[in-house]
Nucleic acid binder design. Structure first.
Length: 558
RNA sequence: GCCGAAGUAGCUCAGGGGUAGAGCAACUGAUUCGUAAUCAGUAGGUCAGGGGUUCAAUUCCCCUCUUCGGCUCCA
């Protein structure tokens, strides 16, 4: 591709072009952005090159040879790359026809081996991934061993786009956005039901089995709190600030500092630990405008947040319990995830290196003892401590952090938190930050895409849609609705003067789990003709039996 | 925030320097119907907002806002 680009746009400077998960990209320094029609020209040129069928030849060169080659071609980025290679590293060049590139390889044997490819999109990307550097033009593409495989890939992408939570969220009447509130969702009546079900599910679980107590801290805090926690120094720009009577306040971007204050306001015995606070209140982060995306990256959100204050000897057990809870909850939704252990960023941390290393070791140990596969992510920790993150992949293949478990020795220090030990002296607790869903907003986005909008009964905004066939059974339908509602089922009547086929079609498109057709026969028999979203016509059932069936699914989270 | 693309009726989209169109939805009427779309009629728009060029701008240019795809960031 780079060969084709330079043939068509001789001014374009080559930089790097690695393979990625679904294909490849190449970054060019070129004064203008490439347009869609440029991509077509580049593709055409690439086909010409492929048809020529030149072999890819690899040769090893010395550092000086490599430098001289790219100096002659006036390719400063390649020279910078070569100079950045460690001493003694093998330098290889790949040639096809008259064009040669610095590359680690390997390549296919010859250009003609490339059977099917497509350039997908252009985007800006910073040189060496640093926003202080120049912005380059990146071209993304993909390639397959056959046209059929490429077609299948493109087809699959189209299918995936249909599950996009932004599209389904609108179609199913769950969420809306308005330009007056960028990055903050409106939860429409149906979306609010979904949200509330999840929220209640988590609350009751944490309060019953989880050993948590629920608290509600203020949303707005004096700047002094954020200075104490360290957030002001690290994230002042990303906080929404409010001035009142010459005092600076900040809307809370997270719950931990509030919970630290709450803990610090009382006296705690070693016998009381662990103390587990949970809270679901709104958080605000002033995310950069260009990063906002549907429900996955928002400015206002709410976490199923929790902070556990423990003695050092209780860390392992509490982390293990959190790991088990994540596995249990994600199992209920059948959601797949990847686990990462993020360790200290030498350029962004508070506290001593010793405590960091100890914290990192304890998290790794907890993962290993629970036989959880994970990937190490150096430098990715929060500034106050290392963390275990759980990434979920969205419909179009992007990964989003959802659950998180973070170990923190630093905030207890900064807030001078203590508990009274057996020796009646003051000791420092450790804090475990943890969220299972992460943010409700993002988790719901993942669920919408995971289920493609066809939610299990317990989450479906409307669980049963009653479909009266004619006006003379509407009264009976209302009676049925009242009965089902009384038993706690979310039920609606489609009383419009429309044909049954249309009502069924619309209920299906809205992905309502159960439809109940009501005509004269049902009215006389006192029953319902049940139709399942998935299985179709289930025949006539009596109201009580059907109600039990739905309630059982509610109970079993199905 | 940076690079790029986009914004036309509630929704999905067409159009294009001479004052805007379809389908669905809505409304009205007819139809009372048995497992994925009944028929007819009516109404609906500062063409995202602001400025400029022009006799004339929704169309061309500039700015702003929002959204989308990436990049950076993500407590």
């Amino acid at each position: 591709m780079a060969d084709a680009v330079q043939q068509l746009f001789p001014e374009a400077k080559v930089t790097i072009g690695p393979p990625v998960e679904d294909g490849f990209y190449y970054d060019f320094d070129y004064p203008n952005a490439f347009s869609v029609s440029d991509l077509e020209k580049i593709e055409a040129k690439m086909r010409e090159i492929i048809v020529q069928g030149a072999a890819f030849e690899c040769r090893e060169v010395t550092r000086d040879e490599a430098l001289a080659t790219f100096a002659k071609r006036n390719e400063p980025y390649k020279i910078e790359l070569i100079n950045g290679l460690p001493e003694g590293e093998k330098i290889t060049m790949y040639r096809h026809g008259n064009w040669e590139d610095l590359c680690r390889g390997p390549h296919t044997v010859k250009t003609a081996d490339i059977k099917a490819f497509k350039l997908l999109k252009v985007a800006g990307a910073y040189w060496r991934g640093d926003s202080k550097n120049k912005m380059l033009q990146r071209i993304y593409g993909t390639a397959f061993a056959s046209q059929a495989e490429l077609d299948a890939f493109l087809q699959q992408r189209e299918e995936a786009e249909k599950r996009d939570h932004r599209k389904l969220g609108k179609e199913l009447g769950l969420i809306a956005f308005h330009p007056y509130a960028p990055g903050a969702a409106f939860w429409l009546p149906k979306g609010a039901i979904f949200y509330h079900e999840l929220s209640e599910f988590m609350r009751s679980l944490l309060l019953s089995e989880g050993g948590f107590v629920e608290v509600k801290a203020p949303l707005l805090f004096n700047q002094k709190l954020w200075e104490t926690s360290g957030h002001w120094q690290h994230y002042a720009d990303a906080m929404f600030r409010v001035v009142s009577e010459e005092q600076n306040f900040g809307l809370k971007p997270m719950n931990c500092p509030g919970h630290m204050l709450l803990y610090s306001m009382g006296l705690h015995s070693y016998r009381d630990l662990p103390i587990r606070y949970c809270e679901q209140t709104p958080l605000h982060r002033n995310e950069a405008s260009g990063t906002l995306a549907g429900l996955t990256r928002v400015r206002q959100f709410c976490q199923d947040d929790g902070h556990i204050f423990v003695r050092p000897d209780q860390i392992e057990e509490e982390v293990a319990a959190a790991l088990k809870l994540v596995a249990k909850i994600y199992g209920i939704f059948d959601l797949k995830y990847e686990v990462k252990l993020s360790t200290r960023n030498p350029e962004k941390f508070i506290g001593s290196i010793e405590t960091w290393e100890s914290a990192e070791k304890q998290l790794a140990a907890a993962l290993e003892r629970n036989h959880i596969e994970y990937r190490l992510e150096p430098n990715e920790a929060a500034f106050y401590g290392p963390k275990i993150d759980f990434d979920v992949t969205d419909a179009i293949g992007r990964k989003w952090q959802c659950a998180t478990i973070q170990l923190d020795y630093n905030l207890p220090e900064r807030f001078d938190l203590t508990y009274i030990g057996e020796d009646s002296k003051k000791h420092r607790p450790v804090v475990i930050h943890r969220a299972i869903f992460g943010s409700f907003e993002r988790f719901i986005a993942m669920l919408i895409e995971h289920y493609a909008g066809a939610f299990p009964t317990w989450l479906a905004p409307i669980q049963v849609q009653l479909l009266p066939i004619s006006d003379d059974v509407i009264d009976y339908s209302q009676d049925v609705k009242a009965k089902l509602m009384q038993s706690g089922i979310r039920v609606a009547v489609d009383g419009r003067n429309e044909k049954l086929g249309l009502k069924i079609r619309e209920a299906q498109l809205q992905k309502v789990p159960y439809m109940a057709v009501i005509g004269k026969k049902e009215k006389e028999a006192g029953g319902l003709a049940i139709r399942s979203r998935v299985k179709g016509d289930l025949g006539v059932m009596n109201i009580g039996d059907f109600g039990k069936l739905v309630l059982a699914e509610n109970e079993q989270k199905r």
